[in-house]
């Protein structure tokens, strides 16, 4: 066989079996080498790309895990925000229950401050701190209690009849004070509490009774109209009606009565009582 340049590959068994010889022409060898090179390159690149893609896959997995984690965090934050909103609502409501008009504003300011101080910084606080952040409970509750003690008068005007007065128009000692005011003058509460009665009394006409949830109750009589109904919560200084002349009255005025443990006391002397209490 005339052979040009080329190679022969011999497979020689170490037993009686015939040996195999594979003859390759030069171009076949070249082609083989090229193919082999290409195969090696493909393999190498495959390995590299495989490694890269493995890396990407791993990265992808870790990012996915991280994403999931963040999503959970976000859900948690959303829950906490909802909770915070609820507690803020609750807090506002509680404050509106216990705070007078003046301090309510400051409480709202506190709430705003809380909202603005950055929600995340609050996350690592105990739960109670989250509910009522920066709320000075002791101070507030002291102020609260004061709000429930009647002070001052429901309308501005001259006192036409003092407490305990007798004779003249009264058959029995006067149980309150009469303050004259033009019809339609707004009547305000003297302390926070719950409206327990809006009655039409023969004597006192349209009369509102407020229980201040301590030992005090107040009554506002001869009103022309009432802007609250039984069961309403009222704050100190809240408008509850307007001056009239209903019931047994002469001239438009408010009959303001202060009851301490069920007994009428002098509203003008009430200050000393309040101070005793405070």
């Amino acid at each position: 066989m005339p052979t040009k340049s080329g190679i022969t590959i011999f497979l020689v068994p170490h037993n009686r079996k015939k040996s195999l010889s594979l003859h390759l022409e030069a171009w076949q060898v070249t082609l083989g080498i090229i193919l082999f090179g290409v195969a090696v390159l493909i393999f190498v690149f495959g390995v590299i790309a495989g490694g890269k893609s493995m890396k990407i896959v791993a990265e992808n997995r870790s990012l996915r895990a991280r994403n999931e984690m963040l999503r959970n965090e976000r859900r948690k934050i959303a829950d906490l925000e909802r909770e915070l909103a609820e507690t803020n609502k609750l807090r506002k409501w509680m404050q509106s229950m216990i705070a007078p008009e003046g301090t309510q504003k400051s409480a709202e300011a506190k709430t705003a401050e809380v909202g603005g101080m950055g929600f995340l910084s609050m996350l690592d606080r105990p739960f109670e701190m989250r509910i009522l952040p920066k709320l000075d409970v002791a101070e507030d509750s002291r102020l609260r209690r004061m709000d429930f003690i009647p002070r001052g008068v429901p309308v501005k005007g001259p006192v036409t009849a003092r407490f305990g007065e007798m004779g003249g128009k009264f058959i029995s000692p006067h149980t309150g004070i009469d303050i004259a005011a033009p019809k339609g003058t707004v009547v305000f509460t003297t302390a926070a509490g719950i409206v327990v009665a809006v009655d039409n009394d023969k004597q006192l006409g349209l009369v509102i009774t407020i229980d201040h949830l301590n030992d005090y109750k107040t009554k506002y009589g001869h009103l022309n109209s009432a802007s609250v109904t039984t069961g309403d919560w009222v704050e100190r200084g809240q408008r509850i009606g307007v001056v009239g002349e209903t019931g047994h009255a002469r001239g438009t005025h408010v009959h303001y009565e202060l009851l301490y443990r069920g007994e009428a006391v002098d509203p003008q002397a009430e200050k000393s009582i309040a101070e005793k209490e405070g």
């Binding site: 020689v12 068994p13 170490h14 037993n15 009686r16 079996k17 015939k18 040996s19």
Partner: peptide
């Protein structure tokens, strides 16, 4: 070294001296 004689192989000699041998011929 070792010697292998294939099934078609043939040796005619007075003396064969190898390390080891596998003979099929």
């Amino acid at each position: 070294g070792p010697m292998t004689v294939g099934s078609e192989g043939k040796i005619i000699a007075p003396k064969i001296d190898v390390r080891s041998a596998t003979i099929g011929g």
